[in-house]
Computed example of a mutant assay.
Amino acid sequence: MTTLARPDSPSRAAGPALPPASQAEYRPMPSPAELLRSLPQSARAAQSVHAGRAAVKQVIAGKDPRWLVVVGPCSIHDPRAGLDYAARLAELADELGDTLLIAMRAYFEKPRTSVGWKGLINDPYLDDSCCVDEGMHIARRFLLCAAELGLPLAGEALDPLSPLYLADLYSWTAIGARTTESQTHRELASALDSVVGFKNSTDGTLEAALNAIVSASSPHAFLGLDHAGRVAAVNSRGNPHCHLVLRGGGGRPNYDSVSVALAEHAMKKRDIPPVIMVDCAHGNSWKNHALQPVALADAVSQIAHGNRSIRGLMLESFLEAGNQPIPADLSQLRYGCSITDPCVDWDTTARVLREARAKLRPLLGN
Rank of each mutant, 00 (worst) to 15 (best):
H243Y: 08
D279P: 01
H241M: 13
I272N: 04
E264T: 11
A261P: 01
S285E: 09
V275E: 02
S257K: 06
L262M: 05
F222H: 12
A304E: 10
W286R: 12
P274L: 01
D256K: 04
G229R: 12
H241Q: 12
A304P: 05
H243Q: 13
K287D: 11
S301H: 13
I303D: 02
G238T: 08
A233E: 14
D279G: 10
A228W: 03
W286L: 14
Y255L: 04
N254C: 04
A263K: 00
G251R: 04
N235F: 15
G224P: 10
P273Q: 08
I276D: 04
F222N: 02
N288V: 11
N284V: 04
K268T: 12
A295H: 02
D271T: 04
G248R: 05
D298N: 07
V245H: 14
N288Y: 07
H241C: 12
Q292Y: 06
A221F: 05
N284M: 07
L291Y: 05
G249I: 04
V234P: 02
V245E: 02
V275P: 01
L296A: 04
N239E: 09
G283M: 08
H227L: 15
P293T: 07
A228Y: 09
A266W: 00
V300C: 06
S301R: 09
L246R: 11
N239I: 14
P240C: 13
R237K: 15
P253H: 06
F222T: 13
S259I: 00
A266K: 03
R237G: 14
S301P: 00
G249D: 07
L244G: 12
A263E: 09
V231H: 09
A266H: 01
A228K: 11
S259F: 01
N288E: 10
S236D: 10
I303R: 05
N239V: 10
I303A: 05
D256C: 06
V294M: 11
E264M: 03
I276M: 08
L244Y: 03
N239H: 11
A232Q: 15
L296V: 11
K268M: 08
V294R: 12
G224M: 09
G229H: 07
P274N: 03
V245R: 13
S259L: 07
L244S: 12
K287M: 08
K287N: 14
I303W: 02
A290F: 09
D256P: 03
V278L: 11
N239D: 13
A232D: 13
N284R: 09
G283I: 06
S301F: 00
K268C: 01
P273Y: 03
C242S: 13
A281Y: 02
A261D: 14
R270P: 08
D226A: 12
H227Q: 12
H227M: 15
W286G: 15
S257M: 08
W286F: 15
A232V: 06
V300R: 02
S257E: 11
S259N: 05
N254D: 08
H243D: 05
A295G: 11
V234D: 05
H265P: 00
W286A: 15
N288W: 04
N254V: 07
V294F: 06
P293G: 08
H265F: 03
G224I: 03
A261R: 10
C280R: 02
V258C: 08
Q302A: 07
I276P: 01
S285R: 05
S259W: 00
P240A: 13
V294D: 06
A297G: 02
V294G: 00
